[in-house]
Amino acid sequence: MNDPVAFVSAMKAIGAGLAMVSAIGAGIGVGIAALGGVQAMGRNPDAAPLIQTNMILGMAFAEAVAIYALAVALIIIFAA
């Protein structure tokens, strides 16, 4: 507490960690996408390429949330 610089960097670290909490949601989303994709491929193996493409697309969108969080965390640590 006596060193304001150390305090600020500690707070930055906490903030970045909190920002990355959104990775929970992204992880769940990616998991659900993979679950649905694999189930669909199991039921209809003929449509696997189409399902795979759309699955990866969906996973990418779900992952985007975590990526924004990552961007925010990086900005907090390095740029703010």
Binding site: A60, E63, A64, I67, Y68, L70, A71
Partner: peptide, 13 residues
């Protein structure tokens, strides 16, 4: 613009 952000930070991250 969000696409730019997600594209770049996904790969970079």
């Amino acid at each position: 613009f969000a696409k730019v952000l997600s594209f770049s930070f996904r790969l970079f991250g």
